[in-house]
Design a protein around this nucleic acid. Structure first.
Length: 265
DNA sequence: AATATTGTTCAGCA
DNA sequence: GTGCTGAACAATAT
């Protein structure tokens, strides 16, 4: 479930495993998943280089080489990276494989092929072109600019939270968690929420993301009060004694507790 | 077998 | 032009 917290954990994993090792081979196993760069450029620029820095914006991961290129990784719904030494451990559905000079490998894996890898020489421009909003983990934003951003918007609070052009990195799972913690029904109309409710949501965005990352995105380590480990219809709400309900909101499966998440419209 | 799935993009519409 | 919704995309599991 690669949303912001997941990708942040990937980023740290990337740094711990794949820095300062010469890339000896680049295997593109799924050419359809290569973005703008040509296959030739992609391979040639990475070959013989080594990674030395990373950046993440929302759900996108960038890794800089000593050639000053940036490898771009997006994970779609099913993507992840895996570092390993034994060739037999090559994961199924590996779409991009990098071999390092110490005999280890980094695989970009994506079962459903909705992710993407690419190369850019300027990750800032890449982000600009996509018109992404701020990254709520890395970048500070105060409540008044948050209000300004929300002003004049229509639709559900859930679709607003998932809008990457406003805030980058929140997807289906974490929008549900943020609204669960905030006590707001995901189907509430954004323009009907008062400042108090918006302030709660604003605070929970930061809090939920920080907690998830600090727990390494492992639902077993999440606080008892979190929805994520109980994200099943009919299960008991960990905050009150309601029953978790499932319905389609903003076009996605949404889980919430109808007892303590009030719908405002 | 039909249905579901964590993301993004784009056609269609208000 | 703007912004929102829902379908389409791919591959697999239940």
């Amino acid at each position: 479930m690669p949303e912001l917290p997941d990708v942040e954990v990937f980023r740290r994993y990337f740094e711990q495993t794949s820095f300062h090792k010469k890339i000896t081979r680049v295997q593109v196993r799924e050419q359809d998943m290569l973005g703008e760069a040509s296959l030739k450029t992609f391979r040639n620029r990475l070959q013989n280089s080594q990674f030395q820095a990373t950046m993440r914006h929302g759900k996108y991961l960038f890794a800089e080489t000593d050639n000053k290129d940036w490898l771009v990784l997006h994970f779609g719904m099913t993507g992840y990276i895996r570092y390993y030494t034994n060739e037999e451990e090559t994961p199924k559905h590996s779409r991009l494989l990098l071999d390092f000079d110490n005999g280890s490998h980094l695989a970009y894996v994506c079962q459903r092929k909705l992710g993407l890898f690419d190369l850019t020489n300027d990750y800032r421009k890449y982000i600009e072109k996509k018109e992404f909003g701020i990254d709520p983990f890395r970048q500070k934003i105060d409540f008044s600019s948050f209000l300004e951003m929300i002003k004049g918007r229509r639709g559900t609070v859930k679709s607003t939270l998932m809008n990457q052009q406003l805030i980058a990195g929140i997807g289906n799972v974490y929008s549900d968690e943020i609204l669960f913690q905030a006590g707001i029904h995901p189907g509430s109309q954004i323009n009907k929420l008062d400042d108090g409710q918006l302030k709660t949501i604003f605070a929970k965005i930061k809090e939920v993301i920080e907690v998830a990352i600090s727990k390494d995105v492992d639902p077993d380590r999440f606080p008892d009060s979190y929805l994520l480990p109980h994200r099943n219809a009919e299960e008991e709400c960990p905050l009150c004694s309601g029953k978790i309900e499932k319905s389609t909101i903003a076009g996605r499966s949404s889980y919430y507790c109808p007892r303590h998440q009030k719908k405002i419209d």
